[in-house]
């Protein structure tokens, strides 16, 4: 993979363009014409001011936003986690605090919500919907961080299948997070605290595990998101290792990305009117790191430079196999394309 561009800029404002701890994106494509990116800002967890979805073009032309705390109750978020479009361009958003999937049209108008519950478990515990994926038949898959299971729902929200359970064995989960469905209808789940990706068929039959705990190549530490391209390559947001790993479908690592951010269009615009910072920045060398031993790890290296991934929480592919990596702690998206 090679770097294409970087999108976004940080902002601590509750409205307007700029990202504030972005957590996930969804891409709406008008094939051959345009790509619109919908980005979820998780924002400051104390106040939630700024929690919202912004949408803008691939070229960084700002369009709008919705779901902020000033909206009606049904349309605002509390602790949103992930996004997915269905086949009618309806945007689905999980909210793990309210145990809901909220559904909006592509202009950000609230449509309805699906309430998730744990009745099938009979314990009334919190569900905590984290990841979401929607297949070609508009079946919705949602992962439960508290119950450690996956539910498959009809578009209307009726549970048609449920599998999982707490544990580290095949088909069990520990706080699962992001998911994706490949072109063959198989489901991939970022089994976050088990440090692996699990693959299932559309009926929940366990097929395969990718990765294991660790810091080495092919190992994961708290993977938060997974995406599968048209060639069935599997991109994993190796969140706790501050990197993205790309595997072929058999599980061999074919690429390890650590980030190579450039200045986005919005960043250039900002620096153009803050010349003192642009000039001081030009005199700085933000890539050279001479860290003491106790800071020589992926987290600190990412925190002390700027081009590397810091908090790569979400991976998504578009129809051209371009990979979008969203970093919550650098408030931007890095876009990559296949090398050849």
């Amino acid at each position: 993979m090679k770097t294409v561009k970087t999108i976004g800029i940080n902002s601590n404002q509750p409205v307007g363009r700029g990202f504030n701890f972005p957590y996930d994106i969804a891409i709406k494509e008008d094939l051959g014409k345009s790509r619109t990116i919908y980005l979820l800002n998780r924002s400051n967890s104390a106040t939630r001011m700024g929690t919202r979805i912004q949408y803008f073009t691939y070229e960084e032309d700002w369009i709008g936003e919705f779901g902020n705390p000033l909206e009606d109750d049904e349309a605002k978020f509390t602790r949103p986690v992930t996004l997915a479009f269905d086949n009618s361009d309806q945007l689905h958003v999980t909210d793990e605090a309210t145990d809901e999937i909220k559904i909006f049209n592509s202009e950000g108008k609230f449509q309805r919500s699906i309430k998730l519950d744990s009745d099938s478990q009979g314990n009334g515990d919190r569900f905590g919907p984290a990841g979401i994926a929607i297949d070609s038949g508009d079946f919705i898959y949602v992962s439960s961080r508290y119950l450690n299971l996956i539910q498959k729902l009809t578009p209307e929200g009726r549970v048609v299948k449920e599998w999982g359970g707490t544990g580290g064995g095949p088909g069990e989960f520990s706080m699962p997070w992001g998911m994706d469905v490949d072109s063959q209808g198989d489901l991939y789940v970022a089994d976050w605290r088990n440090d692996r990706i699990q693959k299932f068929d559309s009926e929940g039959i366990f097929l395969k595990t990718y990765g294991e705990s660790g810091r080495g190549v092919g190992q994961f530490h708290r993977p938060s998101s997974v995406a599968v391209d048209a060639n069935l390559n599997v991109a994993v947001a190796d969140w706790g290792n501050e990197r993205v790993q790309i595997l072929d479908n058999a599980g061999s690592v074919i690429n390890v990305l650590e980030g190579e951010a450039t200045l986005s269009k919005w960043s250039h615009e900002w620096l153009d009117v803050n010349l003192d910072e642009r000039e001081a920045r030009n005199r700085a060398d933000l890539k050279v790191l001479d860290l003491p031993d106790h800071l020589k790890n992926a987290y600190h290296e990412a925190s002390q430079t700027e081009h590397k991934f810091w908090g790569p929480v979400s991976v998504k592919f578009d129809s051209e196999n371009q990979l979008y990596v969203t970093e919550h702690s650098r408030h931007r998206i890095q876009v990559f394309e296949p090398a050849s």
Partner: peptide, 11 residues
């Protein structure tokens, strides 16, 4: 300043 990409931690 938090721009463009958040704070850079010092070493």
């Amino acid at each position: 300043s938090i721009w463009p990409y958040g704070r850079i931690v010092w070493h």
